[in-house]
Amino acid sequence: MKAAAFSYVKPRSLAETFDLLERHGEGARLLAGGQSLIAALNMRLDTPRMLIDLNGLRELSGIRVDRDTIAIGALTRHRVLELSDDVSRHLPLIHAAMPFVAHAAIRNRGTFGGSIAFADPAAELPACCIALDARFVIRSRAGDRRVAAREFFRGLYETDLRSGEVLAGGEFARSGDPYRYSFQELARRHGDYAIVGVATRARIAAGVLSDVRIAFCGMGPTPMLATAAAAALDGRACSRDVIAHAQASLARDLAPFDDLYQTAATRMHLARVLLGRALAQLTADHEC
């Protein structure tokens, strides 16, 4: 299929980008890696009048490590994240999740910011950002603002981004040693969107879990933070009963829907299985 006709412009600065957004408003789309947008255009599911190609904006690209934070620019390709030593050292959860993000050919083009702004609830990176309590940096002519990841995802494919704004990147706290991480996912075929995925972070001291954050993808209209399950684990040693309680608590945290191949109930079952496996991975080498 061929996309409906649209205009294309590749701005050289963010200021120019803001001008274009102002001028074209709802009729404009921002193009990053194009791995979702171009398909939507070709299927004529979306027919914007103007495509604003961000790929000329170097300032939106790259990984920067500061004393306390690590920042990922919106235009950073998935493949760069996957292969980055900085990410593997400071954001091991994202490092673990990257191989689950589609296929290498898609990772070569797809971007961090594209995945966040598209906000597919089954995508891996939004869930990781919630689990890591990331902040997103949003720029507009009015200046910068920062939004916590868990506030950013508002509904199915719906985010906190307002008209005239550009997602510039994400900021993460550098991980300290006491944290352990697990990323688990079930997909029918390697590279498919997750039926269910879980990004988990916790401290473990003397077998006791604390500061537990659990985020699911594929289990609701947005990436879902499992606060009840986390509460069931926080401050406890990871016994069979505690795990079962956390798994049961997911009923309060998650809102899965039927998909083509699985019922909501089955997906809830799978989420519970996956949480068990995540906890097993987190607590490996620690007595439970």
Binding site: A264, T266, L270
Partner: peptide, 16 residues
């Protein structure tokens, strides 16, 4: 033979 159908056979797929 999808995961759903196998789980159903095993009695592990949740109630619909």
């Amino acid at each position: 033979f999808t995961p759903e159908r196998i789980l159903r056979a095993l009695g592990k797929a949740g109630a619909v």
